[in-house]
Design a protein around this nucleic acid. Structure first.
Lengths: 207, 207
DNA sequence: ACTACCTTGTGAAGGAATTCACAAGCCCTC
DNA sequence: GAGGGCTTGTGAATTCCTTCACAAGGTAGT
């Protein structure tokens, strides 16, 4: 398959969110134009995004809401249940663990880790917090698909290396650090400091 | 000034982070190549990014670490102290308020809001949580620059509208919703659900 | 069944961002 | 102070992404 741009995948997420809203309201069909308006893009963009994966609409009519929603869930891999471990049970890790959208979309938290002995043994979103000592063993056994990295940036690369060598191929990183990983491991970084600095830039440099 | 791409601004943030690390280690100069390696980009990209704002290096030598750091702080508007209000004192809002990188980089939380009466009156990161009733009045008085929006998506647009009409020009949104605002208001959205779906896509569609 | 009207799917055009490649400039040594 | 070795700054080339524009195909009404 041709390489799909990151921006395209992000928009598919957005479209799916609207489709689910429409599904809930019982709408039968939707046009690329409606999806575009709600998603802050253009109808041509919507059609082009979808065209990478096939042909889902009916000319003259638009898209069937439930069918397109199902197709998008398939494309995004959301029909599968993903197994997630949270590494770092501090403020951010705990907030994430309790974030409802997680489980709702098929991301199941099967484990949580922290190096702080005070935290080990407590529960977080239904999972018992464990020490990192057992990490590799647990991963071999529980086969998580995704690791959420929520620890201070000083130790982020080091822990990422452990995650990678344990065999996990997808990481959502919240440490404000630029991390390196092999090409077959996908790392997405959510960097609040960077977003704030983007706002600072916008406020400083407007016309 | 020519329009600066979002991606450029994000990279400037990254460069600045490395420069501050180098500053701490007492390094005097750095080349575009070193910055590129650490930032996961190319030396040409680094030089091009900087060239939009001026000429900061010495040919044959590289960049003075403290000088470039100062220049970047200036470009990003970080020499100023920004006044931030947090709207929504739930799990995410609370985690954000306590995030250390905030104050450290000159973002000062001057207020917090929640509609839940149980939460009103408690303190969050040194600020007393207030009811939204006084929001407009408080904004007129305290003149915050940035609002952090951490409420459920159903009410996000409505609250954003209040933020906008109160006169705030920069918003960091954590609700998984596509929001619309006037062009002179900058909205950055951090959408965890979208990032997770991006990982799901990557895991599903790899070669 | 014919016509009028929509909306998709997609090559082609256009625009934006990245990478290339090299002249210009600075330092250091001899 | 001339030459060699680096590294910057930047037009030009390239690659990537978005927008345009329209033929193809479907619906609905008569």
């Amino acid at each position: 398959m041709k390489r799909i741009a990151d921006s395209t995948v992000r928009r598919l997420s957005i479209y799916l969110r609207f489709l689910e809203e429409f599904e809930g309201r019982g709408l039968a069909t939707v046009s690329s134009d409606e999806l575009a308006r709600r998603g802050g893009t253009t109808s041509a963009q919507v059609r082009k995004d979808l065209s990478f994966f096939g042909s889902f609409g009916k000319r003259g009519l638009g898209y069937s809401v439930p069918e397109l929603a199902t197709s998008l869930r398939g494309i995004l891999g959301l029909e599968k249940d993903w197994r997630v471990v949270i590494v770092g049970a501090g403020k951010i890790g705990a907030a994430l663990a309790q974030y409802g959208g997680f489980r709702q979309r098929g991301f199941h938290i099967i484990g949580a880790y922290d190096t702080n002995p005070d935290k080990v043994g407590r529960t977080l979103a239904g999972a018992t917090i464990r020490s990192m000592d057992s990490f590799e063993r647990d991963v071999a056994e529980g086969a998580p698909d995704i690791a959420v990295l929520a620890i201070p940036s000083e130790r982020a690369q080091e822990v990422l290396d452990r995650i990678v060598s344990a065999g996990i191929k997808a990481v959502l990183n919240f440490a404000p650090a630029q991390l390196t990983a092999p090409l077959d491991v996908t790392v997405k970084t959510v960097n609040m400091a960077m977003e704030l600095e983007g706002l600072s830039f916008a406020l400083t440099n407007r016309d």
